[in-house]
């Protein structure tokens, strides 16, 4: 019997003024799966995430499974935070009062030695590990990660994905992730959604990599090259 999806979006549309940022997007997120959202700059990836967490008004329907617990990591915290904030206090702001549990989670995410550091002094990779620890503190059914490896070097990226894979294996948490890194996407995802205002194509990484819409957006070498940046701004396949 198929499991109840964690999130079902139907006809999800977001407009800003007259501009359509998301156009009638349908998708669902299943328990335990690793679903990755890719798309060129300006495709509406961040808008879709913001709709999921309730930050932007939308039309259409977005149904969360009853009692769904959400963990979320922002792309980064606003630069140059003026607020003095030790890492342990930041984790506690999730609502977790037990100091030992907070410490265990930081250690689980490879950030045990950071607990007394100030948030503003962390590197990009350290920030992502702390944000992940905070998101996991809520024992989520679904983790929503907004470009978690942005600004990380290749080894840092590999370590982060390994950590994520370990945590998925342990907890069975579903992961919905925005990523630019096509190589990692192909290796780590169960399913991929390719977005450009609307959903261009979706499916297993293998299916998406062969899809003409995907190839038009990202070029024929996408997914084969170990790492490359893509600067295609337009999707003109209609």
């Amino acid at each position: 019997m198929p499991e109840t999806p964690l999130i079902v979006a139907k006809d999800l549309t977001v407009k800003r003024g007259k501009r359509v940022l998301l156009d009638a997007v349908d998708f669902e997120i299943l328990p335990g799966e690793a679903l990755t959202l890719i798309g060129p700059n300006g495709a509406g990836k961040t808008t879709l995430i913001r709709a999921l967490i309730g930050m932007v008004p939308f039309s259409g329907s977005l149904i969360r499974r009853k009692g769904l617990r959400l963990g979320y990591t922002p792309q980064k915290l606003p630069l140059e935070q003026l607020i003095p904030m030790p890492v342990d206090r930041f984790i506690a702001l999730s609502g977790e009062r037990n100091r030992i549990r907070r410490r265990e989670m930081l250690a689980r995410c490879g950030a045990a030695d950071l607990q007394d550091s100030q948030m503003s002094t962390l590197s990009g990779g350290e920030t992502q590990r702390v944000l992940l620890a905070r998101a996991l503190m809520r024992a989520p059914d679904l983790l929503i990660l907004d470009e978690p490896t942005q600004g990380l070097d290749s080894p840092g990226e590999a370590r982060f994905y390994q950590l994520l894979a370990d945590i998925r294996a342990e907890t069975g948490v579903a992961v919905f992730m925005v990523s630019h890194d096509l190589h990692m996407v192909m290796a780590q995802s169960d399913r991929v959604i390719c977005l450009n205002q609307h959903i261009c194509c979706s499916g297993t990484p293998g299916v998406v990599a062969e899809d003409p819409n995907y190839l038009q957006l990202f070029g024929p070498r996408a997914g084969i090259a170990p790492y490359q940046h893509h600067h295609h701004e337009h999707c003109d396949h209609d």
């Binding site: 967490i53 930050m55 959400l70 922002p74 915290l77 935070q81 607020i83 904030m85 702001l93």
Partner: peptide, 21 residues
């Protein structure tokens, strides 16, 4: 206080955790 600090740190994080902006 906790909500005010969370909204200061990241409104997105606060919304995702179910807080009211």
């Amino acid at each position: 206080w906790r909500g005010l600090l969370n909204a200061t740190l990241s409104p997105e994080l606060m919304a995702a955790e179910g807080g009211s902006l």
